[in-house]
Design a protein around this nucleic acid. Structure first.
Length: 319
DNA sequence: AATAATGACAACCGCAGCTAT
DNA sequence: CATAGCTGCGGTTGTCATTAT
């Protein structure tokens, strides 16, 4: 009785997107704003389902996305957050402003998982000699075991409870500026998440200034809307379409510095603002609020292996 | 050089939650 | 309240590139 899949229609194209399709999609979104994905294929003539359009935009074309070259700090954050949150990639991505959940998920699956397995193998071999007397059941050698033991739903519930607690603490202590964790319930929609992480001050336009620049760069020959002359990063990414437009690779945008750049935020163009609703929830508002988390993540970077064994009770202590 | 195996990543699929009617 | 439609999420697959044999 359910709704038929949106991609089952005849004539709906699948597979990799072409540069031409990307340009059509980006230019349409630039004119109409993201959202209302159902109308995108009909209005653009793209032979894609709405879902595919949305995915392409959010994971690839959306401004402000950094791709590839995960830094060590990002790696550590992902590892920590995965240990804490489980495979809630969207939640994890909300802490990594320029990364998409899909990217993080892929990176985890292809790199970090193996890396950690290797680490655990090594540490197991070392500890095995010291703890041979340890009973099998108590020897928590991997996150998966812990997860299996506790149940992922329980972990998720715990996390949400912790975050709710955090919200309460925050609400009760107005001068506690160090605790500004974005509170991202799994039940929140994007706008809720955005609201939840929005500091009171006005800096929400910062990323969109960059967005305008990115879009203008994306469509140099297609759109004539570029009013500003953004500082173009002359270094094209290694990927992209051969000798065609370079899309989605914004190596230029330095979020951390842009964040506090009020000039940039003031220069946001009207058309830029239409991207605000669809930008990554909270990404342009989170960095200062990350202080608490960052301190924890980076200060304890050396203990990344230990965290993988962290029980829920230990999580309680953390909070 | 040819082929198989493996890795990396983009994209798809199915489901759940939310909203409007 | 029930239903349909839309969106977002996470698991999984498909495809291309690279490496090994």
């Amino acid at each position: 009785m359910g709704r038929p899949p949106c991609c089952d229609k005849i004539g709906v194209k699948k597979g990799p997107w072409t540069p031409e399709e990307d340009i059509i999609l980006v230019s349409f979104i630039q004119q109409n704003g993201p959202g209302n994905w159902r109308s995108v294929p009909t209005n653009t003539g793209l032979l894609r389902c709405s879902k595919s359009c949305r995915l392409r935009w959010t994971n690839y074309l959306r401004p402000g996305i950094k791709r590839g070259n995960f830094t060590e700090q990002e790696e550590k954050m992902i590892i920590h957050l995965q240990a804490l949150l489980g495979n809630r990639w969207a939640a994890i991505a909300s802490y990594l402003p320029q990364r998409t959940d899909n990217d993080i998920k892929n990176y985890w699956n292809t790199h970090l998982k193996k890396k950690l397995e290797k680490l655990h193998e090594e540490s197991d071999q070392e500890t095995h000699h010291h703890h041979q007397a340890t009973s099998k059941g108590c020897h928590s050698s991997s996150l998966s075991e812990t997860t299996m033991y506790k149940g992922q739903w329980e972990r998720r519930l715990q996390t949400d409870i912790h975050m709710a607690k955090q919200a309460l603490c925050e609400a009760l202590s107005l001068d506690n500026k160090s605790i500004n964790l974005p509170l991202l319930s799994s039940n929140m929609n994007s706008s809720d998440k955005l609201q939840s992480v929005l500091p009171l001050s006005n800096q929400s336009t910062t990323t969109y200034a960059s967005s305008a620049e990115n879009i203008a760069r994306l469509l140099p020959d297609w759109m004539k809307c570029s009013k500003k002359s953004p500082e173009i990063n002359p270094s094209p990414p290694s990927e992209g379409y051969d000798n065609s437009v370079q899309i989605g690779y914004n190596n230029n945008m330095n979020y951390y510095s842009n964040y506090s750049n009020s000039d940039v935020s003031q220069s946001v163009s009207p058309e830029t603002s239409m991207f605000q609703d669809e930008s990554k929830p909270g990404m342009e508002n989170q960095m200062p609020p990350l202080t608490f988390l960052e301190n924890w993540l980076f200060d304890e970077a050396s203990t990344q292996g230990d965290l993988m064994n962290m029980s829920l009770e230990e999580s309680d202590d953390f909070y």
